[in-house]
């Protein structure tokens, strides 16, 4: 295995033992997988280092690389007789590359689009007040005196900004939490979904409940919480993606 210095016969034997255990394991999969991940972290570190000077925090590269490693462990077939490290390397590199591809957007947001963010927010808020509804792209384009596709690009660019910086917009405030129990009654996955919704921040849960169970519009939710509709939209997108991933995870 490249990159690690002390891959002994003992390690190799333990790896094979773990991989065999993983084939039949039901309850302890996570524990077995964790040990395999730990054993191969030097490989992730080695591969991540090749991308270390490209402007992304090394910790992030390790993290996404580890996601690749986990995927590889899950897909590895011990019967094929090849080495896990050989099998895993392309998965690890693949995840790191994908991270750069996904990031490329936000890193390369043209300055013009960044400078348009503040006027876009201001125009959206003003037009929403005047029209008593959200403006269209055409109306924003007229108000800002820029082409419609530039407005669209600027809106898209907002989605690619890091969630953490935007999430600081609102955390305070007391929320009248609607009960999710009745809404959940109709849902097949209520047993899994209930705890996942409970685990969300009160604000995120409120937004999800209002939009999908009470069928409020994004605009109405934004008004209730006193945040921008774009912010509601970002939280919906992020939380939905998270819930979807969690619901698809096989419970082990």
């Amino acid at each position: 295995m490249s990159g690690s210095t002390s891959w002994t016969e003992e390690n190799r034997a333990r790896e094979h033992e773990l991989l065999r255990l993983l084939v039949t394991a039901v309850h302890d999969r996570a524990v077995i997988r964790d040990e395999l991940v730990t054993m191969h972290l030097p490989l992730v570190r080695h591969l991540a280092r090749k991308y270390a000077d490209r402007g992304e925090p090394f910790e992030d590269l390790l993290q996404v690389g580890t996601v690749g490693l986990i995927t590889a462990i899950d897909r590895f077939d011990i019967e094929r007789g090849n080495e896990l490290s050989t099998f895993a390397a392309p998965y690890i590199t693949g995840e790191i590359r994908r991270h750069f591809r996904d990031k490329a957007w936000s890193v390369r947001v043209p300055r013009g689009l960044q400078e348009l963010q503040a006027p876009l927010s201001a125009a959206t808020e003003r037009l929403t007040r005047e029209l008593q509804r959200s403006p269209t792209v055409g109306e924003l384009s007229a108000a800002l005196n820029v082409p419609e596709d530039v407005v669209l690009d600027a809106m898209e660019a907002r989605h690619s900004y890091s969630a953490s910086s935007l999430d600081q917009e609102l955390e305070a405030g007391t929320l009248a939490l609607p009960s999710i129990d009745t809404a959940l009654d109709r849902i097949d996955e209520r047993e899994t979904l209930g705890p996942l919704l409970e685990a969300l921040s009160p604000r995120d849960r409120q937004i999800i409940t209002r939009r999908f169970f009470d069928e409020w519009s994004q605009r109405q939710i934004a008004d209730e919480l006193g945040i921008s509709q774009m912010h509601v939209s970002r939280i919906l997108a992020r939380t939905l993606e998270q819930l979807r991933a969690q619901l698809q995870e096989p419970a082990d």
Binding site: R133, V137, V151, Q218, R219
Partner: peptide
């Protein structure tokens, strides 16, 4: 998702519904 947003703009939908279109196509 990106195409859905562009098409929603062409349909002259308000931007909260444009964002809904993105989410719906995503889903």
């Amino acid at each position: 998702r990106t195409v859905a947003a562009a098409m929603a703009a062409r349909a002259d939908l308000p931007i909260d519904q444009l964002e809904d279109a993105r989410l719906a196509v995503d889903e």
